[in-house]
Design a protein around this nucleic acid. Structure first.
Length: 441
RNA sequence: UCCCCGGUAGCUCAAUGGUAGAGCGUUCGGCUGUUAACCGAAAUGUUGCAGGUUCGAGUCCUGCCCGGGGAGCCA
């Protein structure tokens, strides 16, 4: 028979601790840091939702004092104590510990490797599975979650249906970039997808307004703070939609993601010391300029760009720094865009495509536009780009059977989240980044 | 693939071609309000690897390995 207990001490999260001021609670987490001041101990506990300072007096809690003294960083603990408002404690609350259960003690002979100080990137990336425990990394991952949640919410509010694309594909989506080749069952070869676009074009013809959201893979040997070999992309596609529809959708999606982060994740942005004034400004309408105008701006600023060039990192930074919110550049030369882009009927040398450049130099976060709906033109473009027509027969079917004008885009999740967080490098905004020469852990 | 930078204690970094060091972490001691606490002491090294130059190489030269930043390409 269970023993009668007067009142169970509630297990709470550190995030919620303010609601239990004056009460005794149980916290379950890890020892983040321990400061010793003679007969007083100041442990800092973390539980994934936040950190809180504890205090233990040798005089008042000799048993707890003895077991806590010398306890190693990141040892797992279950802590019982009373919550007090305490202005001297970081976070404003403090727990006076009355009982401590050590779930696992990190051995002194093999201490937790990540100290509360600066570390090198290589060291941290080799220990990414531990690095994510630090408050800053946890805040970034919560903002990633918020961005995904907000993005789905927005797509749903606009009447879009999630229809995910396959990860194994029979051939290149765009032909230009390098693919990861994998053996598919017996002797067949398959490739990891570099974009779900071709597939959402198909589902758009079935359901109207659709999007996919999943990982994509690029085997490019890019070594920059803006590139991952595995990254997540959200790709809307809508039948009967045009370039203007997609620029409006992209603008609405990005501003909803940013405003949701500001509204729902203020604490995390504070942890990251992000200047939220710059994020609050991200509201429609976003500035829109044509490629022609972009070239003019660049030339006025002394950049050697000439008509027909694509923009590199420098050009993107010059252009986006002119504005306080993301910049949309549209109608690029067809020659520098993907084979499936619809030409501008007014000026066939232009493609009805657009890019969205995040502010503050974070680069391209969206690329998209209208797709070619004509069977003949699409076949011509496949041939011009030396793409294997056999592999694209199913895609050509979309132009054989009830082809309609349609448009879409791809939004790079990590670039967007890196910009929202203000992180220096894109690798911090995905739990386990995959980069050239780095697939561990 | 190309260009640039780096690799020294568990970590972050010092060291004119001349005895390999500091701070943090770990261990021991001290301290009743600490804020990456502080103070005192101790232990800790195949200087990325292989050659070469030199009386002598962490330092100079060659090759290689590993990593970082950028270009190209893209989200």
């Amino acid at each position: 028979m269970a023993k009668e207990k007067p009142a169970e001490t509630p297990v709470v999260t550190i995030e919620q601790v303010g609601k239990h001021e004056g009460a005794e609670v149980v916290l379950r987490g890890w020892l983040y840091n321990l400061r010793e001041a003679g007969k007083l101990l100041f442990p800092i506990f973390r539980d994934g939702t936040g950190v809180i300072q504890g205090v233990v007096s040798q005089k008042e809690q000799p048993g707890v004092f003895e077991s806590l003294r010398g306890l190693t960083q990141e040892s797992s603990v279950i802590v019982t104590g009373r919550i007090r408002a305490e202005h001297r404690a970081p976070g404003g609350y403090e727990i006076s510990v009355t009982a401590l259960e050590i779930v696992q003690r990190v051995p002194e002979s093999d201490p937790y490797p990540i100290q509360l100080k600066e570390h090198g990137v290589d060291f941290l990336l080799d220990r990414r599975h531990l690095w994510i425990r630090t408050p800053r990394q946890a805040a970034v991952l919560r903002l990633r979650d918020e961005a995904i949640r907000a993005a789905r919410e927005y797509m749903n509010s606009q009447g879009y249906t999630l229809t995910d694309a396959p990860i194994f594909t029979p051939a290149a989506c765009e032909g230009t970039t390098t693919l990861f080749e994998v053996q598919y069952i017996d002797d067949e070869k398959a490739y990891l997808t570099q974009s779900g676009q071709l597939y959402v074009e198909a589902t758009a013809m079935a359901l109207g307004k659709v999007y996919c959201f999943g990982p994509t893979f690029r085997a490019e040997k890019s070594k920059t703070r803006r590139h991952l070999t595995e990254f997540w992309m959200l790709e809307p596609e809508a039948a009967y939609a045009n370039l203007d529809d997609m620029m409006a959708l992209g603008e609405g999606l990005v501003s909803h993601i940013v405003q949701s982060a500001v509204k729902n994740r203020a604490r995390e942005l504070e942890t990251l010391k992000r200047d939220t004034a710059k994020l609050t400004a991200v509201k429609p309408p976003f500035p829109r300029i044509t490629y022609d105008e972009a070239i003019e701006i660049l030339q006025k600023r002394g950049n050697p760009a000439k008509w027909g060039d694509d923009f590199g990192g420098d050009e993107e930074t010059i252009l986006s720094s002119q504005f306080d919110r993301p910049l949309i550049v549209h109608r690029y030369p067809a020659a520098i865009k993907a084979f499936y882009m619809q030409p501008d009927p007014q000026r066939p040398e232009l493609a009805l495509g657009f890019d969205m450049l995040a502010s503050e130099g974070y680069g391209e976060i969206i690329g998209g536009g209208e797709r070619i709906s004509s069977y003949d033109l699409l076949v011509q473009r496949l041939r011009e780009n030396h793409l294997p027509e056999e592999a694209f027969q199913w895609y050509l079917d979309l132009r054989r059977y009830g082809s309609v004008p349609h448009a879409g885009f791809g939004l790079g999740l990590e670039r967007t989240v890196a910009w929202v967080c203000g992180t220096e490098h894109i690798r911090e905004v995905i739990p386990f980044p995959r980069m050239i020469y780095r697939v561990y852990p």
